[in-house]
Design a protein around this nucleic acid. Structure first.
Lengths: 155, 155
DNA sequence: ATAAGACTTCAAGTCGGCTTGAAGTCAAGG
DNA sequence: CCTTGACTTCAAGCCGACTTGAAGTCTTAT
């Protein structure tokens, strides 16, 4: 497929596809003259990237998930990401309930509604000043530590 | 409280507080010389802003939730936001399950695992090329339409 | 053979959400 | 009183994720 076909099939502009290729997120299988040729499997990959983005992962994080440096790190990383998502889901659930309640509540100001405040407090637990980008360094380091540990213990 | 106290109590840097004030997200109750004075209630507000941010809302969206132009729009907006969150939560749940499965799955490549692909397909339903910022224009317009409609019908 | 038009590269621009820096003001303690 | 250091303003800078524009190359249809 050429880039226009991929663009159409994926819904992403060609500029984004080039950008992603530059970042190493996708690969073209070759060139015909200057023009990139993609295999259809790039569509799965793009779907996954899109999904990852919408789950709040950065492009760099997504490419980490894709490019396993060993067979294990990928799984560990994946499941750490799943845990992250799990926390996020719980948080969002509280916030959603808070919003729903606020929308229905008769209190003149939401700050005067104890139920709302409580939901917000639960939602805000152990999260204040969370960074813009998830600090995957820490995450990464943890995983690497684990792997090192398990390598060591198996030697 | 002066800005340093608010900063300490909220965990946000003073620069962010000034920035938020500039955006109209928070207000200082006065000045002492040049220095801003805040009332303690700004902390609730900041907690809410933080929460909203972590729910993925932009500062502009958050300020819309705060500044009701009528008594009704706020509730309608809030509950639209809750619906948005609900969709997001469902999506994230599928993605999380997908990641968990991928982490546990024996297939050499995730693309070869039918279960994973299926989860990803469900997660990806009706979402491809979702914008960076939620297009709250549309949302807003819808709400305004509703309000206009209900005003008209009640007149 | 040539012209249109789809592709290419690379640099620069955009947007949101802040942060940083320079230059100035002011309150409080010694 | 005067220094110090926490505050102030305003402009510019930064990061991620793209988009846009200019200038060039190729394919293809006539």
């Amino acid at each position: 497929m050429d880039i226009a076909e991929v663009a159409k099939a994926s819904g992403l502009p060609a500029s984004t596809l080039r950008f992603y290729e530059g970042k190493g997120l996708i690969e073209s299988t070759g060139r015909k003259g200057l023009r990139r040729i993609f295999s259809a499997s790039v569509l799965d990959r793009l779907a996954l990237i899109s999904l990852g983005r919408s789950a709040g992962f950065s492009l760099d994080e997504i490419s980490e998930m894709f490019t396993p440096q060993g067979p294990e790190i990928n799984r560990a990383l994946l499941s750490s990401k799943a845990d992250e998502l799990d926390k996020k889901i719980k948080e969002l659930t509280y916030i959603r309930d808070g919003l729903r309640h606020a929308a229905a509540c008769k209190s003149p100001s939401h700050f005067e509604c104890p139920k709302f405040l409580q939901l917000m407090r639960i939602a805000g637990k152990n999260r204040f000043r969370q960074p813009n980008k998830l600090q995957s360094n820490t995450l990464r380091q943890e995983i690497e530590k684990n792997i090192t540990r398990s390598k060591n213990s198996s030697e």
